[in-house]
Computed example of a mutant assay.
Amino acid sequence: MTAATPEAQTIHWTENGEDRSARWRSESGMPPPKRVMLIDDTTNADTAYRLACEGTALIWKGDFQNARQLLQALARRADHKGSGSAKAKKNKAPKVPATVTEAFHLHRQAQSQRGRTLAMLLIPFEADYTIPLRRAPDVKLACNEAYGRGEEAFAMSLRELLGVIGAHEWRRNGVEIPALDDRIHPHYGVFSPVRGEYVALVNEAPLPKNAKLAFDIGVGTGVLSAVLTRRGIARVVATDQDQRALSCARENLVRLDLSDKVELVKANLFPEGRAPLVVCNPPWVPARPSSPIEHAVYDPDSAMLRGFLGGLKDHLTPGGEGWLILSDLAEHLGLRPREQLMEWIAAAGLKVADRHDVRPTHARAADATDPLHAARAAEVTSLWRLVAA
């Protein structure tokens, strides 16, 4: 199968006095850099960091493992930019955010700038995903899983490649899901169900009486569809508009021997018809994603949340329930007040029958060094049981 990739773009540079070019690949949608130069093991980290900050892309031509070390050195410089140096003392003190909302936006801005800088270190690839560098790993399987069959030589950031390799390991090893007493294997570009508390909520909430059919809106890895079928739902119709997610869910359901109970449909939000149970775990934070994987976390203008609420009543059978799984992190960040959520629920002709809450257990909730620690520490994830008003 040929990979579905954005419109072909190229980068250009000079090598040994000759003009060269290669296809540009960026999963985050980063435009091809206009300035490109070659570097190798003789290039020091300070020089590379200066060039990257100036927007010059650096195609690595040395030892692959040294490229990884250089990326780590660039990351250290990005993380400690302006600290502990004479130059730093002359600089103005960093801006102290007035509100947690401002802190969130400053954090996202800093992370975006850091990501752009680190993405300037590029690795060349041959058409079959071979990396023509000394001590380069064999990444053919990982790249085929992420992008499909290769067709032409290209270049992409080393940072993105490491993400592809990491996703391959997640896919191979899987994530333990206690509710299933089994593992879910996420694919590249599909959000991993590492936040187990939301899965536990779906596993423990009381099912509507005589519910034999359920809709799973935004199936992702298929984890919630699997939990519902294991709980006795005879048939689940699961939707997603991302082909990677549908392929991932299909593979997981086959592995769990549940594929005959779950119908996968490519759709934006709802399938046709009505069900006594409709489940949705939309992205929790109303902000703009900067890469495809972030679409599972960031929902610009709460579009998916509002779409789910607005269409839910028309897809419930009489007496049916809609389960909305949602963190209140956006409330603690000042991005979406609770009053706004309640207004959307009421405007959709719905009311809250019950709510089940759980505190997060992930490491970041207890990390006092996180700039958003106060919001994360206060976070509660809820399963809202919604019914027609």
Rank of each mutant, 00 (worst) to 15 (best):
Q241H: 12
P94R: 10
E294H: 03
I233Q: 07
V278E: 03
L350Q: 01
P208Y: 08
L246C: 02
R376D: 09
I217K: 06
A267D: 10
L305G: 10
A103T: 13
Y188K: 05
R68K: 15
K87A: 14
R338I: 05
V278Y: 07
S225N: 02
D63A: 11
A8L: 10
V190N: 02
D370E: 10
D63C: 12
V285A: 05
A146M: 07
D257P: 06
K209S: 14
K351A: 03
E169G: 02
K140V: 08
R20G: 09
I123L: 02
Q243T: 00
T14W: 15
P178I: 04
I177D: 06
A330E: 09
V199S: 15
R183Q: 11
K261M: 12
Y198I: 05
D216I: 00
N210R: 14
P6T: 14
A366G: 04
V36Y: 08
L386D: 10
L118A: 02
M120V: 03
L121N: 06
F104V: 09
E169T: 02
V279M: 00
A375E: 01
T369P: 01
G55I: 09
G319N: 04
V100M: 15
A368K: 12
Q340N: 06
C143F: 02
A88K: 05
T317E: 13
T117W: 15
L246G: 09
V139P: 05
L386G: 12
P97S: 01
Y147C: 00
S28D: 13
L51T: 04
P292H: 03
F308Q: 14
G310E: 09
A346F: 03
R172F: 12
G148L: 07
E15W: 15
P337S: 03
A296R: 05
A73H: 11
P132M: 04
A214N: 05
A205L: 11
T14A: 11
Y49W: 11
H105G: 04
A119R: 14
H80S: 15
S26T: 02
K313Q: 15
S382Q: 03
P292E: 03
Q65M: 15
L305A: 11
R235Y: 09
T317G: 07
E151M: 08
L335H: 10
L70G: 04
Q113W: 14
L316S: 07
R195G: 00
N144D: 13
V237D: 12
I123E: 01
T99V: 08
C280P: 11
A110H: 14
G307S: 04
R77Y: 10
A88G: 14
